[in-house]
Amino acid sequence: MKTKKERAAYIDERLEELFPETPVPLDHVNPFTLLIAVLLSAQCTDERVNKVTPALFEKATCPEDMVKLTVDEIEAIVKPCGLAPRKAKAIHRLSEILIEKHGGEVPDNFEDLEELPGVGHKTAGVVLAQSFGIPAFPVDTHIHRLAQQWGLTSGKNVVETEKDLKRCFPKDRWNKLHLQIIFFGRKYCAARQCDGLQCELCQTCFPDRKRARKYKKA
């Protein structure tokens, strides 16, 4: 496959075959709980987040209930996720802001979401894509790595990679595709599993590649 367009078309088709269903990896019951779960997933695995959030969501699944908890109470629950003091403060304060400015509802746009404490561009993108169905292409470190390995970007950071991926794929595929890439990476092309020479997509896209692919970390 000589061109980026050909690689992108093949990757799109193959990922749809491998992962026709794309359940959201983080357990949640509404946009607010998804927002909290994604916030907690920073520098933490989805598996661990899913073990922690039931205790938190038993007490609060909306901003009105979350603000009734103290920051210390939230911190004690989310401690296994790491960065607990910072995350607990962000969860409590963003809950207050949602009540003060948004009627207790999670906003459905990047601008308002990114103004919330602890909510970056990727977190906002996940919420918009998975809770509201708004086209976004959230790029984490795994997608950043795979996009480089597959020759879809030379981006130095996740922002540049996101722009490149949006150019490669149809807009109506962004929301599902970002999950499909994550699933593929976890199952077939983890950083320790594949160096650009091992997995099916790397071999098919670059059959003549002889050396391990070094990528630029986000």
Score class of each variant (00 low, 15 high):
9 A>P: 07
12 D>L: 15
12 D>M: 14
13 E>Q: 14
16 E>G: 04
20 P>K: 04
28 H>K: 13
30 N>D: 02
38 V>W: 10
42 A>I: 03
43 Q>Y: 11
44 C>R: 13
44 C>L: 04
55 A>G: 10
57 F>P: 01
61 T>F: 13
62 C>D: 14
65 D>I: 06
65 D>L: 07
67 V>H: 06
84 A>M: 05
84 A>E: 00
87 K>D: 01
88 A>N: 04
96 E>Y: 11
97 I>Y: 07
102 H>A: 09
107 P>V: 11
110 F>R: 13
112 D>F: 02
112 D>V: 00
112 D>L: 03
114 E>F: 06
117 P>S: 01
121 H>Y: 04
121 H>P: 01
122 K>I: 01
126 V>M: 10
134 I>W: 05
135 P>T: 08
143 I>H: 04
145 R>I: 08
146 L>I: 05
151 G>I: 12
153 T>K: 11
154 S>V: 08
156 K>S: 04
158 V>S: 11
162 E>T: 01
170 P>Q: 04
171 K>S: 01
174 W>T: 10
175 N>S: 12
183 F>E: 05
183 F>Q: 11
184 F>S: 04
186 R>L: 04
187 K>M: 05
188 Y>R: 05
190 A>D: 02
194 C>R: 10
200 E>P: 01
204 T>E: 08
206 F>C: 07
207 P>V: 08
208 D>S: 13
217 K>L: 11
